[in-house]
Design a protein around this nucleic acid. Sequence first.
DNA 1: CCGCTGTCAAGAGCAGTGCTCTCGGTATGC
DNA 2: GCATACCGAGAGCACTGCTCTTGACAGCGG
Lengths: 224, 224
Amino acid sequence: MRARLRAEMTDEIKAIARRHLATEGANLSLRAVARDLGVVSSAIYRYFPSRDELLTALIIDAYDALGGAVEAAEGAVDRADLTGRFLAVCHAVRDWALANPHEYALIYGSPVPGYAAPTGTVTSALRSVTVLGGIIEDASVAGVLRDDAQLPADAAEDVARVGSIVAPSAPLGPLSRALGSWLQLFGFVSFELFGQFRNAVDVPGPLFAQQMRAQAAYIGLPTA
Amino acid sequence: MRARLRAEMTDEIKAIARRHLATEGANLSLRAVARDLGVVSSAIYRYFPSRDELLTALIIDAYDALGGAVEAAEGAVDRADLTGRFLAVCHAVRDWALANPHEYALIYGSPVPGYAAPTGTVTSALRSVTVLGGIIEDASVAGVLRDDAQLPADAAEDVARVGSIVAPSAPLGPLSRALGSWLQLFGFVSFELFGQFRNAVDVPGPLFAQQMRAQAAYIGLPTA
DNA sequence: CCGCTGTCAAGAGCAGTGCTCTCGGTATGC
DNA sequence: GCATACCGAGAGCACTGCTCTTGACAGCGG
């Protein structure tokens, strides 16, 4: 009963903090959210031991929101349409990032203090990449991926470790290319959101669609 | 004469600010650098009208440092070794980022306030990507790039605009793949520096080398 | 040589920040 | 019914970016 009030309070704090994040940026002010909540600043500390803990909670929420969006978008595509599922993942990431730019910056931008992100975030952070792994895994068991890997041993070790988490039975060649696509996807979104395309790419949407389609083909997913 | 003293003073401020940036992070304190400089905080304002202006100066310096490092590394490779030049660029970016993580975060992380980066930064920001463009351009005039482009018109427009700046005579297909490699390169470095590889990639070096070699081949650069 | 002008650092001060501590009040559990 | 635990309010500390005023010094024209 008292616990429910407490949960509502923390949710309300996080909601206001998220709103402040959206309007101002990463420099979140505890006193400002307390003011908006009609409460004195020290009261916030009953619910979050420090500003960094609040940010960590927002980070976990952001990872979960992104993961949920990716899962929903990918889940709506016919399971047999591997390329469609891949493209759904890519566009879900970008769409969510464009809709929540500051939350994206919170999780994929420069880490704010020294290193906030504790271990509690990793499970939520894995959700979206797990979806991609599932696609590669499904493509692997469907036998549509050609294994043309000739990776050096040290690099193969890294790829294999990633694969063991998200796509255990996928061959290393396509897995390595999928990893590259993942990096390119977030490189694109980060460049777009952080203003690196200034004076170079005006309307990034079509370019993004083309790049991701090319990546699907490069990985070896069947051209739908 | 008085101007030279002034230049030395601004250089010293920037040097101390850079040192603070390296030890603490992005939240640079004007009062702290003033303290280290043995001067009162308001004196800094004689040289930089605001903290954001100081950050902007550091950003421009960082872009120039990265650009210089890339130019030097690429210039040391035999001009005919196109793949070697490409790999030199990739590794120069990563090496510089690993050596100056906070300055990398300053220019390729989330923009600190609303939007600091003014127009003065773009010329410095273009230096590194121009080097890559030169490689693609050289490969194009050498006739080693196969033009297998079938880009949709809207995406082709974006690619062509980028190409007109850095590699005017390159065909759109390889240019589009080179753009993707550029995004993947910075996606990799950002993931590595910002802790996104946690529990997944322990020793990113070999993986990076393999990914960039694969990209060189994918673009169509001759396998040395 | 005097005096004017422009530049500089110092210091005080304002509004804001994260965070700690104490002090009453209230609800929960025994 | 009472002890315990929690809660919000408020004061306070050390810090921040930034502004303003004050006094000192250098260079130049007369």
